[in-house]
Design a protein around this nucleic acid. Structure first.
Length: 180
DNA sequence: ATAAAGGCCACCC
DNA sequence: GGGTGGCCTTTAT
């Protein structure tokens, strides 16, 4: 897993993406659920599972980029999901958010498959030892399911904590990562 | 500017 | 186990 693929979208890149208007969208069925993916020529913008209450992050993204129509391509999204499931993703992840959120995502990205850390550990890692609760918020805003393994963060007391796409899926992901 | 809500933690009982 | 402050970032008034 290479940590270099997380890229902050700002300045020129941001303007470019917002003005180009070239953006694609696709869905894909996986053993873990239905995946929705949004991307543009520069990289991925969103990887999100479908839940009972919708697809987290999807509407926000539409609104932010002012894209009324996204070109749909399920062939590409299927290929992308295949890569994501094997952890061989080296695609650029284009992230829009605060520097705090970026730091948290960077930190969780370093924990390897089969391992887990606590929210507290991440807080220490980014040099904000008392911002544990804020870390939870930041992980809750992770736009890249699977690619940024936010499911590997657990509570200090051994509890699972929460998960943007449903606690059941978090448990399932962790369990599957245990046995290679 | 201010308030309220979180994927938490440590400490008490 | 369950409850209670304290903590920090975001988002919405």
């Amino acid at each position: 897993m290479q940590k270099a693929c997380l890229i902050a979208v700002e300045g020129q890149l941001k303007r470019q993406i917002e003005s180009d208007g070239i953006c694609s969208y696709g869905e894909a069925d996986t053993p873990l659920g239905r995946l929705h993916i949004v991307w543009c020529p520069q990289g991925l913008l969103l990887i999100s599972f479908q839940t009972d209450s919708g697809v987290p992050g999807l509407n926000d993204l539409r609104q932010r980029l002012n894209y009324l129509d996204w070109q749909r391509d399920d062939m590409v999204s299927q290929e992308l999901s295949r890569q994501l499931l094997q952890e061989s993703c080296s695609l650029p992840l284009l992230f829009t958010g605060t520097s705090f959120q970026l730091a948290v995502l960077h930190a969780i990205q370093t924990v390897p498959c089969g391992h887990s850390v606590t929210y507290k550990w991440i807080a220490n890692e980014i040099d904000r030892p008392s911002a544990t609760r804020a870390v939870g918020n930041a992980l809750g805003a992770n736009p890249f399911a699977l690619a940024i393994p936010c499911h590997r963060a657990l509570r200090s007391d051994g509890g699972l904590g929460g998960f943007r796409w449903g606690i059941a899926l978090k448990e399932k992901l962790l369990k599957e990562e245990q046995q290679p």
